[in-house]
Design a protein around this nucleic acid. Structure first.
Lengths: 337, 337
DNA sequence: TTGAAAGCGCTAACAC
DNA sequence: GTGTTAGCGCTTTCAA
């Protein structure tokens, strides 16, 4: 049988109010009573009734969701699905979400950030894209004492905040292994970076590092040779057939592999192993067609859900929650999609 | 602002009791009032306050967990971890679990089952091993109107019960693909069945079916030849080096791959691709050492957790929950463990 | 520094 | 058929 505040009060021969003060250490109690009550709590293992607590507390919790605007980018839609699923699930516990979307430039980021900070929030779900600006933002949250949980990529410079997402380096390392299932005697690997970003902290660069690192650790694959190209635009115009001459394997360290897949498909370039990231609709299409061989999935939907759940557990249930949660690296092929 | 029963009562000019009767359709109300109240509910979007509801309801929920005894079998420990994690999480919502473990024979199963059914439970978490006996058990649950959720394997003969677990056939199909990453020009595959069971419905048989099915769908792998052996005991005594002569690939359709891995390791048999199931400690050990190449994971820990969560959502929150939940098939290799 | 008590929204028992 | 009300366990306010 679980003990209640009332019972504790009886046993300690004090009032409920006193017990409450001790439990929430609001002070204004004699040490004598504190000891008495704590002893009883220890003995009987008091656990607060979360229903009664929240009913009496009767507060609504407002979280802010602060993400890049998905201007036609399916990539940012997916975590939002998870976030909305969580919103749906936790609204009965008094959770409401406000959404703040910033455009892919630091000015927009700063503008929306300050708009967000004008309001009062109990917690913030945040995807940091611009490194310096994000650090500023996080420091302001810290000052205001608002819990933050980050998804997609992490900022380690400001501590005490939570992160739910990938281990980018390790995912690149994994890609290295996947690439090696193609056992040609000679193997030319092309890494294609399709991105406008220039941040040196970007996730895709860490993935590439991990990728190379695999081959440093596995000298038996000395037959692999590497080259890189960079495309600043998402269009296919920048691709030409020549680029792929003699290429056996392609590694695309972000979600844009469908662009290359489409090109390969159109130009009937076969027998190239293609490894990419993320289960975007277009990527999955080419996975099913056999043009893309492997997709590494970071479960972005799950990231969104877990981030909201993290805030809920930390703030409403006042539980101790782990601060860093790496998503498992899922290998997705045709047969287990 | 969310509307309360009190407000609805005011607006409809009836008492709270009447509103309550209508919401829970306990009857004994005039159609007139029903319509009036429903109109208001529709207009204002009433959602019951789950805190108040559960506080007032103040009922403890008892679920039974009915699983095979893990007599040194790590396999059945893992879902229990998830179950205990869920127990921990949901106890604050009034959930308590009673555990019933049956030994690996149908007599024990029947004995424990009837012991379980003597008690009154709000829900049951169940792993059906013995097919016929499980059907009997499920029918009794059905008669008593107790919700059941199954994990690990499903019984489709008794409907209206939930299942959280693997798609065994598809996981075998997936194994087929994995095996093909070994691109030897000729490839002899040995399927080793390590089991005492004889049930024709067993999961491992469905996996083998799926495995062969992959090769029927992919005639380009005509260079793969198959053979099977069956070991009735978990010991290594039944293994000898001759069995593995000329073998390039081994497929173990259950969690026992570590037994073969140990043998291969001891006898220094190399260059054999080994595909197995489940992240048992021993399996993971040989995965890391490179003796096992692929493990297919069905997330048994998650299965346990989700099963309890299913009961919680269905019974306490009275939500509509999906009845069949296939776990994603995870491909685990050294690099993403 | 402490006690008493109202009230959060809902359920269920009881009275009419 | 319907209304009234005690009480679930906790929070918070007010008075002492």
């Amino acid at each position: 049988m679980i003990i209640t505040i009332k019972k504790i009060a009886q046993l300690a021969a004090v009032s409920e109010g006193t017990v409450d003060r001790i439990i929430h250490n609001r002070g204004q109690v004699t040490q004598e009573n504190i000891d008495k009550v704590n002893a009883i709590i220890k003995e009987h293992g008091y656990k607060k009734n979360i229903f009664a607590s929240n009913l009496a507390f009767n507060k609504k919790f407002k979280f802010a969701v602060f993400l890049p605007k998905n201007e036609g980018l399916e990539y940012w839609e997916i975590p939002i699905n998870g976030i909305e699923r969580a919103e749906d699930e936790f609204q009965k516990f008094g959770v409401t979400l406000d959404y703040y979307f910033y455009k892919y430039n630091s000015n927009s980021f700063k503008k929306i950030a300050s708009k967000l900070l004008e309001q009062k929030y109990d917690g913030i779900l945040f995807a940091p894209i611009f490194h310096e600006e994000s650090i500023l933002f996080l420091n302001q949250c810290k000052k205001k004492n608002i819990p933050v949980v980050m998804i997609d990529s992490n900022i380690k410079e400001v501590d005490s905040f939570a992160y739910i997402g990938q281990d980018a380096f390790q995912s690149g390392y994994l890609a290295g292994r996947l690439v090696c299932y193609n056992s040609a005697s000679e193997n030319n690997v092309l890494i294609i970076k399709i991105t406008r970003e220039i941040e040196s902290t970007s996730v895709y660069l860490q993935r590439i590092k991990g990728f190379y690192s695999f081959f440093e650790d596995h000298k038996e694959f000395a037959n692999f040779k590497f080259s890189e190209i960079r495309l600043k635009d998402s269009g296919q115009k920048q691709l030409n057939v020549k680029m792929f001459e003699g290429i056996d394997t392609i590694f695309i360290p972000n979600s844009r592999s469908y662009i290359v897949a489409e090109f390969l498909s159109k130009n009937n370039l076969k027998n190239i192993v293609l490894v990419g990231y993320d289960l975007l609709e277009e990527n999955v299409k080419y996975l099913k067609e056999g043009v893309i061989n492997f997709l590494i999935n970071q479960k972005p939907e799950q990231q969104g859900y877990l981030a909201v759940e993290y805030l809920y557990k930390k703030i409403i249930l006042k539980e101790n929650v782990q601060n860093t949660h790496y998503m498992p690296l899922e290998i997705i092929i045709k047969e287990n999609y």
